[in-house]
């Protein structure tokens, strides 16, 4: 199917058509925190932001807190019940290329060994409509990780800003099916295609921060035991965990129970390797020192995850740089590490 386009004024109508079929999520502001939320049927203000959400869209598939099952205690016996799932089809509108890439990375963990029965069904029921970025932040470095601000590799349908309109590209069958569900889309002209190409090239050049990922696994392995390096890197970290909680590829979770009288819930919630309690055992804690936790976080993303799944667990979204309260910076950290390894 040939590419199409849509006038920005008609986006609400397009979303309206899709919302008949899908539960629709758009970038939204909840008490000032930008995150994906259910569409209210009219809001398209996010089109003027040119900025990404603070909370990554992983939260739709892997919520900050999620019920795993509930149980009822009857005398000595337990009755266990799974949360009801309506299998509702979902559509995420306006996902950034690097956040979509992050979902492809997360899939590997949730599929590994045992399939995760909460994340994967939601992932399967969801269509991703990407929105190319036009104004990368100074903290963005997606081009260093094989991506681009307008990359369509991990979405079903891709939108690129061409002025008053978006160029609409069908990437997968699911995406092309979406195009046929609305009469708001018009045929794209050759001039539209050219403009989209120009936007893509120009935006790519706007990502100025670079991270050298060459041989990064080997370099991290050889720096693993250099304690003063990691102590220096970790010095200003306050172990608040925000870089991991807001990371689109971080997936660590805790599991806990809540009991009210005889009725209880088991739920999982986002956890962070930045917290000392994360690895705490009754007699020992292998990562009680902060530098060990920082080292684990960095190595997990750029060394251990590639060892297990052949992909770096970072998409260069820059959230960890922007949201850190003490300006800890992953790209500077890796530069420091590389300089140390090179100098021996």
């Amino acid at each position: 199917m040939a590419n199409k386009k849509i006038n920005k004024k008609n986006i609400a109508k397009l979303l309206g058509d899709w919302s008949k079929e899908f539960e629709l999520f758009i970038p939204s502001k909840d008490e000032g925190i930008a995150k994906f939320a259910k569409w209210d049927g009219k809001d398209t203000s996010f089109l003027d932001w040119h900025r990404n959400t603070i909370v990554p869209p992983k939260a739709i598939f892997f919520p900050p807190v999620e019920e795993m099952f509930s149980f009822q205690k009857d005398k000595q016996s337990y009755h266990i019940e799974l949360p009801s799932s309506d299998g509702q089809k979902q559509l995420i509108f306006g996902i950034r290329p690097y956040d979509a890439n992050a979902l492809t990375i997360l899939d590997k963990t949730f599929k590994d060994t045992y399939e995760d029965p909460y994340y994967l069904p939601k992932r399967k029921n969801t269509v991703l409509v990407g929105l190319g970025c036009t104004k990368p932040y100074d903290s963005c470095f997606c081009t260093s990780l094989g991506g681009s601000p307008t990359d369509s590799a991990n979405v079903d349908l891709m939108l690129t800003d061409i002025g008053d309109e978006f160029l609409v590209e069908g990437v997968t069958d699911k995406g092309r099916e979406l195009m046929s569900m609305s009469s708001e889309l018009e045929e794209a002209t050759e001039a539209d295609e050219t403009r989209a190409k120009e936007t893509k090239e120009a935006t790519y050049q706007k990502v100025t921060r670079q991270l050298d990922t060459k041989d990064i696994e080997e370099k991290l392995l050889s720096s693993f035991e250099i304690q003063d390096l990691w102590e220096e890197i970790a010095a200003k970290c306050i172990s608040c965990g925000i870089c991991t909680l807001l990371c689109p590829t971080c997936y660590c979770f805790d599991i806990n129970d809540e009991l009210i009288k005889d009725r209880g819930t088991r739920f999982r919630s986002w956890d962070s390797c930045s917290f000392p309690v994360y690895t705490k055992m009754p007699m020992e804690n292998p990562r009680i020192e902060k530098w060990r936790r920082v080292r684990n976080k960095v190595c997990h993303k750029y060394e251990f995850y590639p060892m297990n799944f052949d992909v770096i667990a970072c998409t260069g979204c820059g959230r960890c740089v922007r949201q850190c309260p003490v300006n800890w910076d992953i790209t500077q950290t890796l530069e420091k590490m590389q300089a140390k390894v090179q100098s021996g």
Binding site: T109, F110, D112, T113, Y114, D116, Y251, C252, F253, D254, I255, R268, D271, C273, Y278, T279, K280, M281
Partner: peptide
């Protein structure tokens, strides 16, 4: 320390 037991929760 473990939670999930199946290689997902991380710790």
């Amino acid at each position: 320390r473990m939670k999930c037991g199946i290689g997902k929760c991380g710790r």
